[in-house]
Amino acid sequence: MSKIHVQTIVNRDPVEFLADPRETLLDCLRDHLGLTGSKEGCGTGDCGACSVTVDGTLISSCLMLGVEAGGKSIETIEGMAQGEDLHPLQRKFIEHAAFQCGYCTPGILVAAKNLLEKNPSPTETEVRYWLAGNLCRCTGYDKIIRAVMDAAEEMRGAA
């Protein structure tokens, strides 16, 4: 099975890897690039734990092949903080106790960041529907929704 050379941008850094065409972008991020912050919860696009953005669009990295990543710009949870400075969503998630086990957290943070970039003032309902594909089994979502709403408010204030 011949591998394909892929050159792409991940978290603003140029990277390259060799991908078997059957490997998903998630496999490539985790196994070839050592970026294990994106998680696999289902492998079928039903849980959102592997959420990343590709050229600014939110996707499930388990539903994209690694070989499709050439020439794209990919953002993962590892690129969310700027150096030591956490994104407001990251801070608010800690502050609001918006996770228990933390496994779904990277995907939810990536998805929520993408929402707030598109819609800085989402309603609670909009947040809930946007995140409907991000399963969390620990929290019942309450504190997650509050953290996102609170981060949005803070970001609006700062803007």
């Binding site: 959420s51 996707i59 539903l63 946007w130």
Partner: peptide, 9 residues
């Protein structure tokens, strides 16, 4: 069809 993430593709 599917989630926001699935909508992306």
């Amino acid at each position: 069809v599917g989630s926001t993430q699935v909508q992306g593709r």
